[in-house]
Amino acid sequence: MTRTHLPGIIAMAAIVVASNILVQFLFGQWLTWGAFTYPLAFFVTDIMNRVYGASAARRVVMVGFVVGLACSLVGTQIMGEFGPLVTLRVAIGSAVAFLAAQMIDVSIFAALRGGTWWRAPLVSTLIGSSIDTALFFTIAFSTSLSFLHPATNVSWASEPLPLLGAGPVVPLWVSLAVADWAVKLSIALVALIPFRIVTARLMRSA
């Protein structure tokens, strides 16, 4: 880890902390404000990968993982109206999803880095984001995984409702996952422009 990696480390840590705070605040019926900051973690990972390589990107991911664990630990100790702000299942889901998705993102990016400039960040982020969403919401809220922590009450997340208020009837957590996934994909597309600008400037100054 060198001093040149410090901006990436700070950015990743800030995104993880901000997302853990903002996830407590609702945005509409299906999202939280954290849904709009968390996808930026993929943006930082991909910039580090493009400019400094996969090894540096993995180090930054590990920093984000450790910071995320610390945030979850703090959250489990803060009591809200309905119990701890962060339940054990949410903590497990968050940690597993972040580490798996980010590491897969790094590997896919590295495999595609020699192609057209937009292919590696777009494909790696789309796949990583999809894995992240699937792992987190399934681990945190699916009744099939209630054995992870039987004391955690996730019955509210299994309430049958129309998908996003208009589709087929599914558990509530599926609508939450679909909305979260849609935001991630949208940000992945929009982020291609600043990705191109930032990486070009960093590579010129490197």
Rank of each mutant, 00 (worst) to 15 (best):
D46H: 10
A111P: 06
S186L: 14
Y38G: 03
V66I: 11
P171R: 05
A91Y: 07
F82P: 07
M12S: 05
S124V: 07
A70L: 14
N153T: 05
F98Y: 12
L185Q: 12
D180V: 05
T4Y: 12
Q24E: 15
W156Q: 12
P194F: 02
T87Y: 07
P160I: 02
P160T: 01
G114L: 06
M12F: 09
A200R: 05
M203A: 14
T199V: 08
F98D: 04
L172Y: 15
G115S: 09
L88T: 11
G167Q: 03
F137R: 04
G80W: 03
I21L: 01
L73M: 11
V169T: 12
S124D: 02
P150L: 08
A101F: 01
A100V: 15
T4H: 15
P160A: 01
L145D: 01
V106A: 03
G115H: 10
P150S: 10
F36R: 06
V63N: 00
C71K: 03
T87R: 08
P150G: 09
A110Y: 07
L185K: 03
P194N: 05
P84M: 02
G68D: 08
S55G: 06
T37Q: 09
V66S: 14
W181P: 04
W173P: 09
A177E: 12
P150A: 11
I15W: 00
V123E: 06
A54Q: 06
A134L: 14
A56I: 02
F136V: 11
D105A: 14
E81G: 09
L202C: 12
P194M: 02
S72W: 00
G80D: 01
L6D: 07
A57W: 04
A14K: 15
A157D: 07
I197G: 09
A35F: 04
P121I: 00
I197Q: 10
R50S: 13
A13P: 05
L135R: 12
A56G: 07
G167R: 04
R201T: 09
M48H: 08
G68Q: 06
F136Y: 10
V106K: 00
S107P: 14
N153M: 10
I193W: 13
L189P: 04
I131H: 14
A140Q: 03
G93C: 01
N153V: 03
P7C: 02
R59E: 09
A11F: 02
T133Q: 13
N49A: 12
V51P: 01
V178D: 00
G83D: 03
L122D: 00
L40V: 08
I92D: 11
F65K: 03
R59L: 09
A179D: 05
A70P: 06
L161W: 05
L202W: 15
A18R: 03
A191T: 10
P171A: 03
L172H: 15
